[in-house]
Design a protein around this nucleic acid. Structure first.
Length: 986
RNA sequence: GCCGAAGUGGCGAAAUGGCAGACGCACAGCACUCAAAAUGCUGCGAGAGCAAUCUCAUGUGGGUUCAACUCCCACCUUCGGCACCA
């Protein structure tokens, strides 16, 4: 027997498979033809899909191999179960890294992409994946993106693509629009210049029109619950009401969504002085700057300061929370600023979540009722008693002052935004609770305020105790309550433990803020309170309105909605968090958006016959100084004729985002070379939906949502036969670098699989990646374990010597025909149990335990003097999907002419896996003391009661049991049929 | 901050509410060898004991149960996503 030479074997079999086109997916017509000719080919299909890789310069990542091997195993199994399998591969090659590389080096992105895909293809082939390479696609191929552009035109035609003014990140030094990823701490990643906001018209896709279906249809697909939950959260459906708020003096009506009952119970309203410097600062550079400033002018002109009011019969509290990611402001805005944002972006943009149940419960638990705070800052506004909250915005030298009556937020709380309090002072908060810690420490330098400031302000008169509620990012938590008493707090040195707490957020009382600001020479801005002062909720029980008095508000939610609707205050509404998709990029390396701008005709789509609109070659890949894509600089390309009026027109210079090409690629695989259509209807009908789609956890929201959206649109256009693209979706965990960090070129911790394939072989690497840990969990890369799977392969190889080859040629896999071989019941049991375990584990993606089962089988077989050809053959056939090369080699060495990958998948025989003996653990008070074994035949004909009596009697006579258990001290006997017996003694 | 996931030996990890640590790595001893490597055999959570055996142990604190890694509540820590990275 030769020694195991992985290099020779792997190369050999890869060639054989490719030559015989062993893994080619057969299209419907051919299938039908073959079926009549041979009558063996199945009509049942299986479409296995992995996310097509982005061919980066780093080369193949070990994480790609994890996902690809898993679906490869499943594909192999399905083929051998008689399915016609489609397992395709391609390249998602448009994207920022390639473009940035081009900017730096001047090398054309198309050339970089060619080099990278060639490398990826070589690497993937070296791993022996059973892809159908004839269907390889590339999103940057004009033959492919022609159809991406075509789909865009359909969207445009259907009114789902539109233009809108938006802000983008802009680096004033590099004169380039930046992706979010390129902005670090508000600065440009490359040059460190502070990033500015710029206005730009952007193409949008109205994915929100599909929000309802994207949400609802999740019920009908077989996705991991985790994925469904994430998608649902992302879409963010909630049912509530729209309130109409009229600002009387200004004649403005604002409609705001709220998820109800708390809103109804609260009575205050947050406003801000129009002359406040904050106003301008907050809105400057934003798309709602204009209306807000207009409003400010209007207020000033009307001399309405301090007077504008809200319709009080609404009894609503509104605090507009403007979502940071979008506006780039990251703070709560006063309502009327927010309302403009709302009008601008639609109802999905503003979210009054501060009042939801969660926050309420949180507040209830952690807040100090106002009356327990030593000196509540009582103020009088319009004759009513109220409490003042001052919200300083430190980095802007400004304070928003809020005054509230008793309301659901009767807990005094004020937030300091933009301040990283590094464990300033910490104290207990709940009533009667002793302060766990206290002390003073420097406030983060960035605030410019040191503890000395506070010592000065607070020392002597007020001792502050802060409670660190949230360790987290530097965000505003509006109704997160607070935090500290003012009375006689002790100060202690801060402990080591506390010193380790970073970036905590703390809250100050109004009194302290007031003192602090006065000291700093700042003034409090005016405030205004509207509404009536009645406590509405007490301990979670409603007091007002009368109709619901005494009830838990969370229980009467729907009744309150009804009530509000009935009173005509509000209308029922469904709210989604989902926002429309910003579809344009001011970049070169993407699909050109196929429209032209004509002075006469406006936006005109490029006729389908003129597609694709090809990307021209350019010299400089940097975006232009005006914020347009580099395409704008190529006059010969930009200047064109209007397809409608034949007059002068200019091409759209924006390109599509990366998500475009990946939103429909799985459809193209079904008919990758079609020149007339994006895919032929009969092929789509045969192959779609994708039966099993596996990919990264990081794609469970965006990519999945975008492609589901496109698919649903295409379904509505009667272009695809199914409502959902993927029947089943699973996710794999990331493979991290050794320290648990993400692998990245910049950190220099990327593992190149080439060296491993060279050293131990693709089979060992594939086995290792399946064995290293649970498939769905993130795992740190550790090369040391590979020797284990390599040794395992060598043991399988060596085991070949024990196989009795003198028996006549048998058909392994067909278990009924085993007769004639030397077999034993024990060996049968082992092999059949392994078939069962491996088959089940593949279906549930528990690949680590599947490999372990194979290892156990081999360990056991090593102990046997000889192994039958069938038993060895079966082990090889179930090992084959994991280690395809060595399995085929050994299979051939047994005299088999056909590839192991065409063998039927073995089926286990339940009769052969049954145990002859039953082992029963014996417990005393739930703790296992001993166990005993008896032949299964002993209790074979017994009733359950008889069997129990039999086991009980045997167990009671065991050493170590009989001396501890007497019939008089047994309280209870628990017998779990065939599993264990437990004596409860007292 | 919001959403999601995870926490078990020196390490990667197994365990339908029913024998905690399968399988693998590392390590130690032995065999083979002039020697080393490779390979094979044995041992391998912690503590006590000559031993049989006993006690403790699945992030922390409670709870449910005859029985909890598993279910419930609260907390701590780590990781992932958050809309222009893909």
């Amino acid at each position: 027997m030769q020694t195991y030479d992985h290099k020779k074997i792997e190369k050999k079999w890869q060639k054989v498979w490719e030559k015989k086109k062993l893994f080619k997916a057969l299209d419907p017509k051919k299938t039908a033809a073959k079926k009549t000719a041979k009558a063996t080919l199945p009509a049942k299909k299986f479409y296995a899909l992995i996310e097509f890789p982005y061919p980066s310069g780093d080369g193949l990542h070990v994480g790609h191999i994890r996902s690809n091997t898993a679906m490869d195993i499943i594909s192999h199994k399905r083929r051998r179960e008689g399915y016609d399998v489609l397992y395709p591969i391609g390249w998602d090659a448009f994207g920022l890294p390639t473009e940035n590389y081009a900017i730096k080096t001047g090398i054309q992105p198309a050339i970089v992409t060619k080099t990278n895909t060639d490398n990826f293809r070589r690497q993937l082939k070296s791993l022996g994946f059973s892809f159908d390479w004839d269907r390889e696609i590339n999103t940057t191929d004009p033959k492919y993106y022609k159809w991406t552009q075509w789909i865009f035109l359909r969207l445009l035609d259907a009114g789902l693509a539109y233009k809108k003014r938006m802000t983008i990140n802009w680096c004033p030094k590099d004169l380039i629009g930046l992706a979010n990823e390129e902005v670090i701490d508000g600065k440009c990643e490359r040059c460190g210049t502070a990033v500015e906001k710029r206005e730009k018209e952007q193409w949008m896709l109205a994915i929100t029109k599909y929000a309802d279906r994207l949400h609802k249809d999740l019920d009908a697909v077989d996705y991991l619950e985790q994925i469904k939950t994430q998608q649902r959260n992302w879409i963010g459906r909630s049912e509530g009401v729209n309130f109409k708020c009229k600002i009387k003096d200004l004649g403005i009506t604002v409609e705001m969504y709220n998820s109800v009952p708390q809103t109804y119970c609260a009575e205050t309203f947050t406003v801000i002085a129009p002359e406040h410097p904050l106003v301008e600062k907050l809105v400057k550079g934003t798309s709602y700057e204009k209306p807000v400033l207009e409003l400010v002018a209007k207020i000033k002109q009307k001399k309405l300061e301090n007077k504008f009011d809200i319709d009080t019969d609404l009894e609503g509290i509104f605090t507009g929370r403007y979502i940071e990611n979008y506006a780039g402001l990251g703070r709560d805005l006063p309502i009327w600023v927010a309302s403009y944002a709302l009008a601008d972006y639609g109802s999905g943009m503003v979210n009054c979540s501060a009042h939801d149940e969660r926050d309420y419960k949180f507040a209830k638990k952690y807040s100090i009722p106002l009356h327990e705070v030593a000196e509540p800052l009582a103020v009088t506004v319009g004759g009513d008693d109220a409490f003042r909250h001052d919200m300083p915005i430190v980095e802007r030298n400004a304070v928003v002052c809020i005054v509230k009556h008793w309301a659901e937020d009767k807990y005094l709380c004020v937030s300091l935004k933009g301040v990283k309090w590094q464990g300033f002072v910490v104290g207990g908060i709940e009533k009667g609770e002793e302060p766990s810690v206290a002390g003073v420490r420097e406030i983060a330098e960035e605030t410019g305020y040191t503890s000395a400031h506070f010592e000065k302000i607070l020392g002597g008169t007020i001792h502050a105790k802060f409670y660190q509620v949230a360790k987290g990012q530097n965000r505003f938590a509006h109704f997160t309550p607070a935090l500290f008493k003012l009375k006689n707090g002790d100060r202690r040195e801060i402990t080591e433990e506390e010193k380790n707490v970073h970036e905590s957020m703390s809250w100050l009382t109004a009194a302290e803020v007031d003192a602090f600001l006065t000291h700093e020479g700042m003034k409090l801005v005016w405030d205004r309170v509207v509404g009536r002062s009645k406590p509405a909720v007490k301990n979670g029980i409603l007091i007002e309105p009368k109709e619901f008095k005494g009830r838990e508000w969370s229980e009467v939610r729907n009744d309150i909605i009804e009530h509000l609707v009935h009173k005509g205050i509000a209308t029922r509404a469904v709210n989604y968090k989902l926002r429309d998709w910003v579809f344009s990029r001011q970049r070169y390396w993407g699909e050109p958006i196929p429209v032209v701008h004509c002075d006469k005709c406006g936006i005109v789509p490029v006729p389908v016959k003129d597609l694709p609109v090809k990307l021209p070659k350019v010299k400089n890949y940097k975006p232009t100084e005006t914020g347009e894509s580099p395409l704008a600089a190529i006059d010969s390309w930009v200047n064109t004729k209007c397809p409608k009026c034949k007059g002068k027109a200019k091409r759209e210079t924006d390109t599509m985002p990366n998500w475009a090409g990946s939103s429909w690629y799985y459809l193209r695989y079904t008919d990758a070379k079609n020149k007339k259509e994006f895919a032929a209807a009969d092929k789509l009908k045969f192959w779609t939906p994708v039966d099993w789609y596996n990919g990264g956890m990081e794609h469970t929201t965006l990519h999945l949502l975008y492609s589901r959206f496109w698919h649903k649109f295409l379904f509505d256009q009667k272009l695809v036969p199914t409502n959902e693209p993927y029947a089943k979706r699973t996710s794999h965990g990331l493979i991290l670098a050794k320290g648990g960090e993400k692998m990245s070129k910049s950190k220099g911790n990327v593992v190149n699989p080439d060296g491993i394939v060279e050293a131990v072989g693709a089979d060992a690497l594939r086995l290792y990646e399946m064995f290293m840990g649970p498939f769905d969990q993130a795992i740190a890369w550790d090369e040391n374990g590979i020797v284990g799977t390599r040794r395992f392969i060598e043991r399988v190889w060596k085991l070949r010597e024990k196989v009795a080859l003198d028996t006549k040629k048998s058909k392994a896999g067909v278990l009924q025909e085993v007769a004639g071989n030397t077999t034993s019941a024990e060996a049968d049991k082992l092999v059949h149990r392994t078939i069962k375990k491996v088959s089940e584990d593949i279906e549930t993606m528990h690949f680590n335990t599947a490999v372990s089962a194979l290892m156990i089988a081999v360990n056991e077989m090593e102990k046997m003097p000889t192994i039958s050809q069938d038993h060895y053959g079966i082990i090889l056939t179930i090992l084959a999907p994991f280690a395809p090369h060595v399995a085929d080699e050994l299979w051939a060495s047994m005299g088999n002419k056909k590839s192991i990958h065409t063998e039927p998948w073995p089926v286990f025989d339940p009769a052969k896996i049954a145990d002859a003996n039953i082992t029963i653990p014996v417990q005393i008070n739930g703790k296992t003391r001993t166990r005993f074994e008896f032949p299964a035949t002993d209790i074979a004909g017994m009733t359950d009661a008889q069997a129990e009596a039999y086991v009980k009697e045997k167990a009671l006579n065991l050493d170590g049991i009989k001396d501890k258990v007497y019939s008089n001290n047994i309280k209870k006997v628990i017998y779990v049929k065939g599993r264990l017996i437990n004596f409860v003694i007292g």
